[in-house]
Simulated scan of single mutants.
Amino acid sequence: ADLRAAHPFLDAAWAARLVRLYGTEAATLLAGARTAADLGEDFGATLTEREILWLRDREWARTAEDILWRRTKLGLRLTPAQAARVETYLGTPDKAA
């Protein structure tokens, strides 16, 4: 409820997913975001650019497979085209670590 109060653009399921995965760090992940657009590109199923960068920078995720299947399980909800977009994004030189 606190996360949704601070970030009213989150729906209940999105907020619950972030809290389940990141606990109190979800607030840090969303810091400064006033709208969903502030989280960068939307890859589908509530996976945003900011979350991908968080996973890369803080949890050492390096591949789309790691992000979509191991860490978030959002591979179950993304279309093949959306999953391919995550793969392409991670392969972009200025996005890769």
Rank of each mutant, 00 (worst) to 15 (best):
A45H: 01
V19I: 10
R50N: 11
T92W: 10
L47A: 07
E25T: 14
K73V: 13
L39G: 05
E49C: 04
L10K: 03
R71Y: 09
L53E: 11
R17H: 11
Y89F: 08
T63Q: 02
A64Y: 01
T79I: 12
A36C: 13
R50Y: 12
R77H: 12
T63I: 05
A84E: 11
F9N: 00
R62G: 13
E65G: 14
I67R: 00
G91T: 03
A5M: 07
A26I: 02
E87C: 10
R20Q: 10
R20N: 10
L29I: 10
T48C: 09
L39E: 03
P8I: 00
A36R: 14
A96Y: 08
A97S: 13
L90R: 00
A33K: 08
R4M: 14
A1G: 14
A33M: 12
T24W: 14
A83N: 05
T92E: 11
A36Y: 10
A16F: 04
T88R: 14
D42S: 09
P93Y: 04
G44L: 07
R50K: 14
D66N: 08
L55I: 05
L3S: 10
T72K: 02
G32R: 08
L3Y: 08
I52Y: 02
T48E: 00
E59V: 05
A97Y: 15
A12Q: 08
A33N: 14
A12C: 03
A12F: 01
Q82D: 13
W69T: 03
W60R: 14
E41Y: 15
L10N: 06
A81V: 11
R85G: 05
R56A: 12
A96E: 09
L39F: 09
A15I: 01
G75L: 01
R58P: 02
T63E: 01
H7C: 07
K95H: 13
D38F: 06
I67K: 02
G44T: 07
D42R: 07
R85T: 06
D42A: 06
L78P: 12
D42I: 01
Y89T: 00
D11W: 06
L10H: 07
R17I: 05
T72R: 03
P93C: 04
G91N: 06
P80C: 10
A12V: 05
A1S: 15
T88L: 14
A64S: 09
E25Y: 15
V19G: 06
A13S: 08
A13D: 10
P80N: 14
A16P: 00
R58C: 05
